[in-house]
Amino acid sequence: MSIALIALVVARAAQFGALTLAFGGALYPFYAPHAVQRGAARTILIAASVLAVFSAMGWACALVFGMTGEVGALADQQVWSAFFFATSFGRFWLLRIGVSAALAVAAITLRNRLVARNWPTAAIAGLAAALLVAQAWIGHVATVPEPWRWIAGVGYAAHVLGAGAWFGGLVPLGLMVSQARRNNQGRDVEQALRRFSAVALVAVAAILIGGLVVTALRAHSASELFASEWGRVLFVKAAGFSAILLVAAVNRFALTPRASEANVVVLRRLGRNIAIEQIGGLVLLGAAAILGALPPPG
């Protein structure tokens, strides 16, 4: 793996992580408004929004480095001018960096009103969602032939928004559970868990259907998929996703009904399983970043 490719994967993973946290974290108070640890959730939202700007710029730098093969090109105004104005994707990149900056500025200036069921939080969720979906225009989806490109775009949008809602929502949920454990108060946790589970169910369906559509547009057959490096990373990602689903099922069916008891053991197990889901989500985002850098089969 070249340095340019490693830089690209790291920047993409940071961008995916930042936008997932921003979108899922900002969406959370709209379905669990009474179960938000506002201080910590706000700090995470601002940090994620700032990371979104830097990772977008890092991603663009990694691309220019990979395209030219020279680190010096990063300081060459002509190269950047060609990148932004002489390619089919350059204007999308300008817009992307601009919207990322708007996300960070909005998160910082509106920080006192975050994270609640209000328009500043909705604006953060909307900007992060737009950036997640717009990745389709600067990635593999951009090369899917018409008329399938729009179907791939819709599938991609469902996939990334589902992942954002689920994995991004796990962070404020985890904060809530750990707070409840300290306060010995489980009623709000049970309600938040039930609402999160309903959202997660829709999110899982979106992840699966969207992922299936995008994969179907990548490969003609399963054997072709198995034969490619892209396909093998995808299978690892799918296996990881299945494992996280199992942990989520234990949370939903075994632990959530007992959360209102405020039993220390139950809350501790819930906290541990949510942490496992969060770590699993990070691994999946890393796998997604690698997939974006590898050539799909076909």
Binding site: H140, T143, L217, H220, S221, G298
Partner: peptide, 19 residues
């Protein structure tokens, strides 16, 4: 319908995504 759609998607021109 999903089962009908999937083979249709599989049969369409896939993208190599690298020139």
């Amino acid at each position: 319908r999903a089962l009908i759609l999937l083979p249709a998607l599989l049969a369409c021109g896939s993208a190599s995504a690298h020139a």
